[in-house]
Amino acid sequence: MSIQEQYRKKAAELLSSGEVKLVIGYGSGSTPDRRRALFARTADDAALFHVDAACDANLSGYLVNEGLLSDKKKIGIFLKPEGIRSVNILAAESQLDPDQIVILGFTEENGTVSGLQGTQASDFTSLMTALKENRTTSEKEQALVDKIEAMTPQERFAFWQAEFEKCIKCYACRQVCPMCYCKRCIVDNNQPQWVHTSSHTLGNFEWNLVRAFHLSGRCVECGGCDRACPVNIPLRLINRRMANEVLDAFDHFSGMNQNQEPVLASFKKDDPETFIL
């Protein structure tokens, strides 16, 4: 039985037995190559789920939609490893109770999907360790990263200036991100107005820099913001760089488990102090 068939069956069982009230997965999209979030409430709905290489969205952000988990009932959700890491962070940051989340995990490699063993976020600890040890970047991606790293600060500034000039402040990057669950984002605060709301170059820089720092040590590199950006700013490169920084400086790989302390909101006595003169 294909992983898709297995998971349709599993989702149908979860729903018909009443173990979960809802399963969040992937359904058909508006074109054959698109998949979109599907919210299944009945066993019949579960027959519409897809599990294939086109299922790229990290659906975990839907879990923190206002009130969804407040009745203490369980929810099933299709997640790739990055999504499971997001659940761990949301649990660590007290945004959800991981016991309410039943995971239908899968992973994709070279266009082929395979299922992951386990149903609770805590079942995937060894997978997280493996992911931390084997961080990979595609050759094409690495070439771009190397090119940017080799730039002088002036050239790099010009590169990002050209990218951020395209920003229209639609906040798709924020809205699609499971880590952006703040009830009121700092850019939406106007007393004081910390960040310019205008979408001019300065305002766009401020927004993207604030976001980069806020996601440092929290981003799981699911690529959601990068795919969502309607003006094609390569946001993944920023997040990748920040993830590398916290890994190098603090040996912190975000979303390892649900007890992980947020790296920028905690300290250890042996934290490097290279930035203190």
């Binding site: 979030a37 839907y62 639609c170 809205q175 699609v176």
Partner: peptide, 12 residues
Amino acid sequence: MRCIGCGTCTFL
């Protein structure tokens, strides 16, 4: 239900 509340549709 799956709308994330961004401004992509409006701004484009």
